[in-house]
Design a protein around this nucleic acid. Structure first.
Lengths: 224, 224
DNA sequence: ACGGCTTCTGAGGCTTTTCTGAGATCTCCG
DNA sequence: CGGAGATCTCAGAAAAGCCTCAGAAGCCGT
C-alpha cells in the first residue's frame, strides 16, 4: 500500500509448499501482493526488513517456530497485524497464540472465505484508512504523499520523508527507536545519522513540533 | 488507557442480562472498566458518545441488531475495536460479521480465557503496551520513561533517573541500600555519591517527598 | 546533456545527560 | 549540647546524544 495505487502486501510464512502456493494464488486473486517464506528464520528476516500490511504465519515452522517468530518480531517493535494459522485448535492453543502477539488465530482446516474476511478485518485500518492517517490536527494523505493541514493546505513529501512519517504515524505516541526507523525506512547500508537528517527535513516542512525527540530513546509523534 | 494510569474501558452490548452480568464481572476482575447496554439503540448511543478502548457486541440484539449497530458506528467513523459475540457460527455468519466492521468474531458458547485473550489482542493494537509501574498516586510509564501524574501530566526522566526510579519502584516500601542501587543502576567505577546526586535530581523533578531517606540504611519510595 | 529534485554523508556546533567533588546541612548518640 | 558521620545541594567539566546543513551523488524527465 505504498505507492498510491499499490496493492496491500501480505507476507505468508508457511512451510507446506502446497498450502503456501494455494494461499498465494488465493490472495493474488483477491488483489493482494504476496511474498512467501518457508521457514521461521526467513520469515523473521523478511518481517524485520520488509514492509507488509498483514502477515499470515503458520504456527508449526521449521528452524524457528511460528510463535517464537512472532515473539521476536514483536520484541523488535514490529506491529504489523499478524494472523496465525494452526492445526492446534484447543482454547489453550489459541490463547497462547494470541498472547504471543497474534491479532487473530485461525484453526486449520479453514474456509478460504473466512481467511479472506479475517484478513480484510485486519487490513481494514491501514487500507480503507488508506485515505489518510490522523496526524494530530492534520492528516497524512497516503495516496498522494501529502500532509493535509487543517485549513486544507497541502505539503508534499518526498518518498523517504513520507515513509518515515507514515511509520511514525502508524503508532502515534509510541516511541520509535532510531535503529527501528532506520531498518524500516532506509537501506541497511545507510549511515547512522540518516534518521536524524530526515527528521530534520520533516521538521523543516511541518514545523519543529511535528516530531518530538525523546532523548536516548527515539522519536515520537502525536503528543500535543 | 488514555491516561496511562486509567484502566482500559470496555462497552458491553448484550441483551441477556445474566451473560452481561457475568461478562461485567469477568472483565472487572481482569482490570477493565466496563459499561453495559442491553439493546442496540442504547449501544449505539453509548458507542457514539462515549470513549471506549474496546467494544463487545452481541449479534442478536433487540431494537437494533448487532451487525446493524456495528455498521452504523462504522458509518459514523467510530473506529474503536469491536469483538462480535454470536451463537451463529457458520463461516458465512462469521464473514458477514467481519465484513460489517468487526475486528474479531467469537462464537458462543466460548471459554472465558479465549475471550480475554482476544480482548487483549484487540487492546494491544492501540496500546502497544503502555505498561506502568504504580508509584503512589502516580505511575511510571516504562515505555516512555515518564512519570504520569494523576491528572495526566507527564514528567520525562533521563536514562539514569529512570533506571533509579524503576529500581526503587520495583519493590516499593522496601529499603534500598545505596550500595545496591549503585551497582544496579550505575557503573562500578562511579563515585560513592552518585546515588545521592540522582536522588536529588529525582526529588527536584518529582517533589521532595518522592523519595524517602532512611538514615544509615538507604532510600525508599511508596510510603506516604 | 541539462536542470531540478531526492537521497545520503559527514562534520561542526549545540543541548542534554552523566559524573565529580566540595561545602552546607542534618541526624544520631554519647 | 557537640561532634562524627551521613546526607543534601549544586556548580561545572566531560561525555553522549542531537541538530543543522552544505555538498556530493543519483534519478528523472525534457
Amino acid at each position: 500500500m505504498r505507492d498510491g495505487v499499490a496493492k496491500p502486501k501480505v507476507l505468508v510464512v508457511e512451510d507446506d509448499r502446497e498450502l503456501a502456493g494455494m494461499l498465494g494464488e488465493l490472495l493474488a486473486d483477491e488483489g493482494y501482493e504476496t511474498e512467501a517464506a518457508h521457514d521461521g528464520q526467513r520469515g523473521l528476516h523478511l518481517g524485520l526488513t520488509g514492509r507488509y500490511d498483514v502477515m499470515v504465519i503458520d504456527r508449526r515452522l521449521p528452524v524457528l517456530d511460528g510463535l517464537e517468530l512472532l515473539r521476536r518480531l514483536r520484541a523488535r517493535a514490529v506491529t504489523t497485524r499478524v494472523l496465525v494459522l494452526s492445526a492446534l485448535g484447543e482454547v489453550a492453543d489459541r490463547v497462547a497464540g494470541l498472547d504471543a502477539g497474534a491479532d487473530d488465530y485461525l484453526v486449520k482446516p479453514f474456509e478460504a472465505e473466512e481467511l479472506l474476511a479475517r484478513l480484510r478485518a485486519l487490513g481494514r485500518r491501514d487500507l480503507d484508512g488508506a485515505e489518510c492517517l490522523p496526524l494530530g490536527t492534520a492528516a497524512l494523505d497516503l495516496q498522494r504523499h501529502e500532509v493535509v493541514l487543517p485549513r486544507g493546505e497541502r505539503i508534499t513529501l518526498s518518498g523517504r520523508e513520507f515513509e518515515l512519517l507514515r511509520t511514525l504515524a502508524q503508532r502515534p505516541k509510541a516511541i520509535h527507536p532510531r535503529a527501528a526507523l532506520r531498518t524500516r525506512v532506509f537501506a541497511d547500508s545507510t549511515g547512522e545519522s540518516i534518521v536524524d537528517t530526515y527528521v530534520y527535513y520533516l521538521r523543516r516542512k511541518l514545523g519543529r513540533d511535528a516530531v518530538r525527540t525523546v532523548h536516548g530513546l527515539g522519536y515520537q509523534i502525536g503528543v500535543v
